[in-house]
Design a protein around this nucleic acid. Structure first.
Lengths: 412, 412
DNA sequence: AGAGCTTTTTTCGAGCAGCAAAATAATGCT
DNA sequence: AGCATTATTTTGCTGCTCGAAAAAAGCTCT
């Protein structure tokens, strides 16, 4: 609740931020449209826009063909982000691959590097060195963007340490322990931020569907891990990057199945791909989890379950029950209006739905508030990347460009 | 994320709010002290204070004796809330009693009415009628406050309906169903708000200890029910009064012990007084819960457990396990720095602690982040009342008085 | 008693917001 | 060419905060 003094500077910052937000959400648009969208007067939009143009953050664009039918009157001049005003480097680190994308201020992909990751990758090359190398390669390939690089953002899985400089634990081998984000930050002199993949999923799905932008959505990732992100009324929970939302490692059954994390009874141990497989093949719960499940093997298990094969459906039943009770327990604390299942496991939602709904139905909150709507969204890559990108660009908008007015004006 | 346009009016509102906040938190103080506390310039504090004085919201006070030793210089004039600037009526409705307090704008108790509540009370008298009657009685007894009454706030247990006008479910018989808060609001023409008791506990404990004001605290109530409220960095979770935090009815064991709510396996069914008693007396889990447990009976059970009696300790062990797993599951979503146990059950914390810690220890998050600090605070009445009062007075500060400036100045 | 010291509070002028309304600009239509 | 229409900019005004300087209010000391 640390509120601070408001003065004319903070007013400008707020309203500049409003305009940048509107531009971010609505794409290039006319000043008039921005005035309507933001609620600012035309005069203020003009004044702020003059600053933004002078700073080179936005540019006027050749008016698009008027698709709206109206043909009379002075044509509107569209204003949109100046692509080269800033660049961001986005890492997505996964269990089996890493991807580095260079994106410009308008959100357009400029370059991309993909790398295989194995369990030994970060043992052989320290994470900070690995990232530094990839980043150097990228900057070399696109030198003109290099100077305008403003942020590096990294998507990871695991539990962040308190200051977000590294991971305390991660399912990705060798990643936890060293504060590689802080280290990278010190080396390149740019802000480096670490984001939990689950959190980004929630951020990304917000941008997926305009209806979801201000809704409360719990996004559950099902795949080789189980994770959750949540947005409440358009706010992503957990300010900054604190707050653990380790849904996958929420306990389902005391002393239950062995999880990859080493604990027992986690939801993940039943609902991640390896958990379902273990159940389906009647491997004892306490057996060591498979290190990785080929996508194809998981897919064929889904097909066998869809065909009605008993052992396979049993696996998905236990998974559904774990997810259902997990969601029921989550609903005792939050009240999202939508529940979105994403990732490879989303394909199997219908197999799991009966058990999920049975479990949910056993909870008072669901009995009172009604069964929440559970939907599947198959592609999870897109929301993660989109979430990472939007979060990072918005961060530049609000924390860097929204407040730069007087400094630049004084200089000019 | 619905941000809005900022203009000079909103600047004033913000800064007036800042000053009212400082006054609320720090009691009567000098303008200079307020300038330091809020970060505003002396000039602005003076200007705002002139408005507040003209509106009669604050008053200058005879300077207290200088306890700080400094004796030189112009003596400071303390400014504090004008007691009669506003009054609030606060209902605390409990399973066995109801209390209505009249409090002035400075937070001083003016009058209070207490009433016994039985399971038939709200069957015989509809809740809105009941409240209306008590309120009428109070206004009659203190007529001079009646005209300046600004808010009615009600502390309840249960699940609120979406607009906060009533309850969808409540452990208090006859309270759920009718939107009595809306009804009351319509009758008296004043804002009436409904607050979950657990939420207020969190709010109240914030004011208990200055250290807790900006910390993240999960407050667990243990008594005839089990409830939780949480504040994250001084923010109470769940904006407004939405969001269900039904910790007591979070599932602990599928198909477990029968709960008062009618479902099975809720934490409450193991950890509320009736649950512990049921276990201790070896009554089957599926037996109907006792309607009410006399405080004395619960206390003697604690003493028997402290004396080492097996059946009694068993009851607290199961309770501790339920709470421990519940907390572990909660920690998968939140990351509070303190966990505070309040209510009658807080007395038994040490009996439950071993099982709580065992359960917590089985969770990945605790293994990574370390065992959270769990403390007991015996008196729960005080934080609830304080929370209800502070929340309601702050609401007047921010939503009514912070923005009244121009209107009044124009009139004057 | 009065000058001097110290601390608090108020006053004053500058600077920067945003807004409403008026003015200007750029088209299409007739 | 002139008019209608829509977009953008300019103008004049008000409100807010701030820093600096002035005023106020006691206390102390001679």
């Amino acid at each position: 609740m640390t509120r601070s003094v408001s003065d004319s500077d903070s007013v400008r910052r707020q309203n500049r931020g409003l305009i940048l937000d509107a531009l971010r959400a609505g794409g290039p648009q006319s000043r008039t449209a921005l005035a309507v969208r933001t609620g600012l007067s035309h005069a203020s939009v003009t004044a702020i826009m003059q600053d933004l143009l002078a700073q080179g953050l936005v540019e006027e664009m050749p008016a698009a063909e008027r698709g709206d039918g109206r043909t009379r009157g002075r044509p509107a001049i569209l204003v949109g982000f100046q692509r080269k005003a800033a660049y961001v480097a986005l890492f997505e680190i996964d269990v089996n691959k890493a991807r580095l994308s260079l994106v410009d201020y308008a959100g357009i992909l400029v370059d991309r590097i993909e790398t295989e990751v194995t369990p030994t990758t970060f043992r052989q090359t320290a994470p900070d060195v690995f990232l530094l190398e990839k980043l150097a390669l990228l900057r070399e390939r696109t030198p003109k963007a290099s100077g305008a690089l403003r942020r590096v953002a990294i998507s990871v899985q695991g539990i962040l340490d308190r200051d977000g400089g590294g991971l305390k634990w991660s399912p990705i081998q060798g990643l936890a322990g060293s504060p590689f984000a802080s280290s990278l930050e010190a080396h390149i002199g740019l802000p480096v931020s670490l984001h939990k993949r689950g959190r980004l999923l929630a951020e990304g799905t917000r941008w997926l569907d305009p209806d979801l932008l201000d809704a409360s959505v719990a996004t559950v990732f099902l795949g080789s891990t189980v994770a959750m992100g949540m947005s409440l009324h358009g706010q992503i929970t957990g300010r900054g990057d604190e707050g653990a939302t380790e849904f996958g490692h929420m306990n389902h059954v005391p002393n239950g199945a062995l999880c990859r994390c080493g604990m027992r009874g986690c939801i993940e141990a039943y609902a991640a791909d390896y958990g379902v497989l273990r159940t389906a093949y009647s491997v004892p719960e306490t057996a060591s989890p498979a290190p990785a499940v080929p996508a194809q093997q998981y897919e064929s298990l889904i097909q066998r379950a869809e065909a009605g094969e008993r052992t396979a459906t049993h696996g998905f039943n236990l998974a559904g029950r774990a997810i259902g009770y997990g969601l029921a327990r989550m609903l005792a604390m939050f009240d999202p209006s939508h529940i979105l299942i994403v990732g490879p496991g989303a394909r199997a939602l219908n197999l799991m739905r009966p058990e999920i709904e049975t479990a949910l139905g056993a909870s008072l909150i669901v009995k009172i508030n009604g069964m929440p709507r559970i939907m599947a969204h198959l592609d999870e890559k897109e929301p993660i990347f989109r979430g990472l990108m939007m979060k990072t660009l918005s961060d530049i908008d609000q924390n860097e460009f929204a407040g730069l007015a007087s400094a630049v004006r004084a200089a000019g």
